[in-house]
Amino acid sequence: MTRYRSFVALGDSFTEGLNDPAVDGDAVGPAGAGRFRGWADRVAERLATLDPEFRYANLAVRGKLIDQIVAHQVPAAVEMRPDLVSFCAGGNDLLRPGSDPDRMAKKLAGAVRQLRATGAEVLLFTGVDPRDTPIMRRARGTFAIFYMHVRSIADLYGCRLVDQWSMQGLRDWRAWSDDRLHMNEEGHRIVAAKVCEVLGVPTEDDWRVTWPPREDVDPRVKRREDVQWVRTHLGPWVVRRLRGRSSGDDLDPKRPDLKPFTG
């Protein structure tokens, strides 16, 4: 069984844990956003049960682009020199017009080289196949190119890889929150179980999910839901992009220091 005494998580909203609310609900950051748990905290919790000296930091912040993560989070992780670093980024870049998956891959490869040079185990991720997501479906080819690069980088530098593209349980909307962009509690639980398997860490959870059949939805109800989604989630997201703003502006990482995990 693999043991890790320290873990630093890097990335954006996926690794920060949106939308998997923590039990305590403490507010973090000047924007007053609720504290989130997420797959990384769930994995850290499991690792902490296996080693009383385990330490954890989560530097991920929602909305961050790969250049921002490489510029700010990677150097911090290099300085901390943990046993394990997770790096998942690129989704926010790929949602923007004109994104270049080849350039993004070069950025990622450079960051992975830095992290591996410290002796850390590095955990990389592909994303979920976006063919069922209206806002991402048209860019599916671009997503696929980038995630093929991620697989190649993992092979080249000896990284662990969590292949979410093949995880059919994540293609069901019951694993996602109302905004259709972030996983809910069940989605993060599934990912955490997969991460533990990839790392060789024992867990009672299973990422292989068979969802019960759903009742057919009246097309009129579905249209109303889509309209509400555009007003509540897609519209504000587009406005932020046009203004050059991010949901993570002015937010600090929820766990900026490598410390014992306390939940």
Rank of each mutant, 00 (worst) to 15 (best):
Y4G: 00
F7E: 01
F7M: 01
A9C: 13
G11K: 02
S13L: 11
F14L: 13
F14I: 10
T15I: 09
G17W: 05
G17H: 04
N19R: 13
P21W: 09
D26I: 14
V28N: 02
P30I: 15
A31S: 13
A31W: 00
R42Y: 05
R42H: 04
A44Q: 02
E45M: 06
R46D: 01
L50R: 10
D51A: 10
D51L: 05
Y56M: 08
Y56C: 08
L59F: 05
A60H: 10
G63C: 06
D67C: 02
V70L: 08
H72L: 10
H72C: 06
A76P: 02
A77K: 01
V78K: 04
F87Y: 11
A89C: 11
G90P: 00
L95Y: 08
G98M: 09
S99C: 12
S99T: 11
D100R: 00
M104V: 08
M104G: 05
K107C: 06
K107G: 09
A109R: 14
A109E: 15
G110P: 07
G110H: 13
R113L: 12
Q114L: 15
L115R: 05
G119W: 11
A120T: 03
P130W: 12
T133N: 15
I135Y: 13
I135F: 15
G141P: 01
T142M: 15
F146W: 08
M148Y: 06
M148P: 05
M148A: 14
H149V: 05
V150N: 02
V150T: 12
S152V: 08
D155E: 15
Y157F: 15
D163I: 04
S166N: 11
Q168L: 14
Q168Y: 09
R171E: 07
D172K: 03
W173C: 03
R174C: 00
R174T: 01
S177R: 02
H182K: 06
E185K: 12
E185F: 08
E186T: 11
G187L: 02
I190E: 00
A193W: 00
V195R: 01
L199N: 03
E204M: 10
P212Y: 00
D216E: 15
D216M: 12
D218H: 05
D218M: 07
D218Y: 04
R220N: 12
K222C: 04
D226Q: 14
D226F: 13
V230R: 11
V230G: 00
H233L: 03
G235L: 14
W237Q: 10
V238N: 03
V239Y: 06
R240H: 06
L242W: 11
R243N: 09
R243M: 12
G244W: 06
D250N: 12
D250L: 12
L251G: 06
P253S: 11
L258C: 05
F261T: 03
T262K: 10
